[in-house]
Nucleic acid binder design. Sequence first.
DNA 1: CAATATACCTTGTAACACAAAGTAACTTAC
DNA 2: GTAAGTTACTTTGTGTTACAAGGTATATTG
Lengths: 110, 110
Amino acid sequence: MADFKKQFKKGVLELGILKLLSEKDQYGYSIIQEINIRSNNTLDLKDGTLYPIMYRLEDAKLIESYWQEPEGRGKPRKYYRITSTGKERFRQMLYDFNEVNDGITKILKG
Amino acid sequence: MADFKKQFKKGVLELGILKLLSEKDQYGYSIIQEINIRSNNTLDLKDGTLYPIMYRLEDAKLIESYWQEPEGRGKPRKYYRITSTGKERFRQMLYDFNEVNDGITKILKG
DNA sequence: CAATATACCTTGTAACACAAAGTAACTTAC
DNA sequence: GTAAGTTACTTTGTGTTACAAGGTATATTG
């Protein structure tokens, strides 16, 4: 019961990932970096956290993946693309997130 | 994987409850009502959700409880009081919550 | 008297973040 | 050239949490 951040992150990582994929296709490792850079490392996303999320999103058909050779050398990278179902779901998630956020904000300020 | 709100609420209910108890001692049922009123029902807190949280917070010594007769008639009510440990923990939780919130906000706007 | 509100309690479940471990290729520094 | 670090993906197991669904019991209102 010590790690509050862990609890507060529930769901928001999915939300952030879907947001990034709404902007452009990306592979796993670059998602980790972009989440951490944009959030000033406050979300501190690790690979062991990301990949299970990606498989879950893919199972749910919210995203799709395809392998692609990198420019230059290196192993092929697994790119992810958001589906139309995923875009719709993202909008719903965003709505729910804002609702919860507004609610708790009112209580914390009241 | 359909109920996003459920995930977004993780941790924030504890945060809201500790906030209310920071203001004044309250019994379970009144906490439910106040959370729902203040949040315009967006948090939609139910008794089956609240009581397990209260026991958890009490086990962790963040709150204490005492029974008290209501004014007028009725069964005695179980009042909760936040402890000094609880107040300290609340500050930490609030900090972590704001950190996660700032992080995801940056990503959603970026 | 039936319905509704108040007030508390318990059990079981699914979802989630994460640690920790592994595999493998490429790059940089000594 | 070899050791260390970075890139990149994968898998297993664990603890926490919100919640549904059930329960008990008293007081009030129509």
